[in-house]
Amino acid sequence: MHKYKIQLNSEIDTANFASIFAKKIKIGDIIALYGDLGSGKTFFTKKLCKFLGVKENVSSPSFVILNEYQGDYPIFHLDLYRLGSEEELLEIGIFDFPEESIIIIEWPNIAENILPNNTIKIKFELTENEFERQLSIFSLRELNINNLFRKEF
């Protein structure tokens, strides 16, 4: 398991990171985003989708659970916040996606046991500073993003 720690000091930082991260993504990747309300998961997804070729506005899927976009690949943007159990997740058929796509999951906690091993996990943490975010990234595959963002800017 490769682990990366990244500090983002602003929304511009997040956008820059999303542009770099987009280049590391491969078709078939599942990306799970962890973090509290307002920690920037949807904002990151918005920017990531933009750099993956999505032209339309990407908004929060909290209510509808799933939004589908066409970028360079089909992208499925999920939010499992409102789901109650793993059983409910399976009943909804939420993982019946084509293999040739990218899946981004917010609030993935209830899917923890069924996420494949190669899921790229990103934890968003808030700090004392209103605009600062600490990201921890876990990936089986080497992503080579360690040196791109240092603590000091």
Partner: peptide, 18 residues
Amino acid sequence: GRTRDDAAGEAFDKTAKL
């Protein structure tokens, strides 16, 4: 116009949660 991120109803729900 449309929302760029959260829907209005979602803003109510999420702030209520906070």
